[in-house]
Design a protein around this nucleic acid. Structure first.
Length: 480
RNA sequence: CGGGACGUGGCGCAGUCCGGUAGCGCACCUGAAUGGGGUUCAGGGGGUCGUGGGUUCAAAUCCCACCGUCCCGACCA
């Protein structure tokens, strides 16, 4: 009886992770290796994420557009770092209409190239700027090893692409979106991330600087959950995206690009779920509350079903995503397990005794069960949902903080990464040799942002690895 | 591409060492009873034992080759 939450055993985290997905019926592997089928329950979570993010993007002035899936191979090659980074992992179309194509087409691994080819045409004057675009799309990256939601050959994402008249404005945009992502992860996903700047070797191929949100999963590994790139004028120069300034001169646009993907669903699972199955934050739960009627005799059946149906209707009218489990061939206990595996935050049990007393039993996915009055029931449910959302976020934040270590020494860093893992904070000289050495043990490095809540105080003065004077503070972690 | 494990009804597995009629659990179908945390009983359907070759009277089992999957690395969101 899961009155208390069970923390996944860390000895077999990937098996547990796959099991949660399968039991909650979120996704499955397709016959094509590395490709994922997102099932309706999983896709609904994505739709809810899309809805929330889209609202946030629109509030900040962005508009949706769509660019083609197929990109001429030569486009990719126009930006040197970009092609170096992405060419090895593209799928290429060589034939069309039964004939070999004159120029192969790559299936987009990201859309910067095709978008800048178009912006060159659309942007003439500083009056055309800024351009603030977002695209919801699927992309393909030929990865060596895949895992459901975390890394699949094809995946769904949103990619924002903006062009500005000044460097400051483009940087401001990059940071604005990083903040939007952070807010979304905290408020909707109940997954508080750490934000920072990626190192040279980990930044986006073609960017000047990559900012990232890293969240700590229940196995104490970090997951890169969202990235926002300051692209400088790299793509503008590669594609000749120029505009006439107010002063009459000619300049290249400054740009940013940013994205989050269906990987977020993987993060959601690894942040909250337990051995019973999925735990879904109420704001992103496809079903927020399920009503389970319980009865023995036929008279009981009628009364209970009637009340259950009425409760269900009132929940729906109140705008909650509710379900009424009136399957008669299934015993209540079996239903509980099923809805728990699916991550439904609140369950209302209604039996003859409850009908008599004018109440229902309200069980929380996070543990605990208590009677609530049918009077004002939707308010009770709404309150419970809010509390669950809050508790999940606080738990996740507490876990992150409990596994965050400041002012680590070299030995502590190595020990931490060999052992339980977590976020390690310390000084960093920025030297390439140090970065390479640290990457051997940590796999994820970001320079903490100045406003980072875990920032050491005072700032570290020496590099954790080499002991020389430190330039910045960094966060290290084992990562996915 | 390196290191490890595995391949047997839809799913999960036993059987392989020591060759002898293809098994179990879950799921599914039929019927009845049951119903406040995974119901019970009775009956039933469903398998080229990854593929090919070899040894043998006889191969899921032994030998060889190949294919595929998963996990750990290298690649990456």
């Amino acid at each position: 009886m899961p009155d208390e939450r069970i923390t996944p055993r860390s000895d077999d985290f990937s098996t547990w992770y796959n099991d949660v997905i399968m039991r909650a019926e979120l996704a499955d592997y397709s016959p094509v290796r590395g490709c994922m089928v997102i099932r309706p329950r999983g896709y609904r979570i994505w739709e809810l994420m899309q809805g929330a993010l889209d609202d946030m993007f629109k509030e900040t002035g962005h508009e949706n557009a769509y660019f083609p899936l197929l990109i001429p191979e030569s486009f990719l090659a126009k930006e040197a770092e970009h092609v170096e980074g992405f060419a090895p992992q593209t799928a290429v179309v060589t034939h069309g209409g039964g004939k070999q194509l004159e120029e192969p087409l790559v299936v987009r691994p990201t859309s910067e190239t095709i978008i800048y080819a178009m912006l060159s045409k659309w942007v003439q004057s500083y009056r055309d700027l800024p351009v603030l675009l977002n695209q919801w799309a699927n992309i393909v990256r030929w990865e060596m090893r895949t895992r459901l939601f975390l890394r699949t050959t094809e995946f769904l994402w949103q990619e924002g692409h903006t062009a500005h008249a000044s460097e400051e404005e483009a940087v401001e945009e990059t940071l604005l979106i990083l903040g939007v992502y952070r807010q979304f992860m905290e408020e909707w996903m109940a997954m508080p991330p750490v934000t920072g700047v990626k190192t040279e070797s980990e930044k986006f191929a073609g960017a000047v600087r990559t900012y990232a949100c890293e969240a700590l999963m229940q196995d104490n590994k970090a997951l890169q959950a969202g990235t926002s790139h300051f692209l400088g004028q790299n793509f503008a120069k590669a594609f000749g995206t120029q505009y006439q300034t107010a002063e009459g001169g000619l300049d290249y646009v400054w740009s940013s690009s940013w994205g989050v993907s269906t990987r977020l669903i993987g993060g959601l699972i690894m942040t909250h779920s337990d051995d019973v199955g999925l735990v879904c934050p109420p704001k992103l739960a496809p079903t927020q509350v399920v009503v389970v009627p319980i009865f023995r005799s036929d008279e009981q059946r009628q009364a209970v079903m009637e009340v259950g149906r009425r409760v269900f209707d009132s929940l729906r009218s109140a705008g909650l995503r509710a379900a009424f489990d009136d399957r008669e061939a299934m015993k209540p206990g079996a239903k509980y397990y099923e809805w728990e595996a699916r991550g439904v935050p609140v369950r209302l049990e209604i039996g003859p005794r409850d009908v008599e007393k004018g109440q229902a039993m309200l069980a929380r996915r996070t543990g605990g069960k208590a009677p609530v009055s049918l009077e004002g029931l939707t308010d009770h449910v709404a309150t419970a949902l809010q509390e669950i959302q809050t508790v999940l976020c606080e738990d996740a934040r507490d876990r992150r903080d409990a596994h965050s270590f400041r002012h680590v020494t070299k030995d502590q860093l190595v020990e931490l990464m060999d052992g339980d893992g977590g976020f390690a904070y310390g000084g960093y000289c920025g030297d390439e040799a140090c970065e390479l050495a640290i990457k051997q043990v940590t796999k994820a490095t970001i320079r903490a942002l100045p406003d980072e809540e875990f920032r050491s105080d005072p700032a570290p003065s020496t590099c954790v690895w080499c002991g020389r004077t430190a330039e910045v503070e960094a966060v290290w972690a084992r990562a996915y």
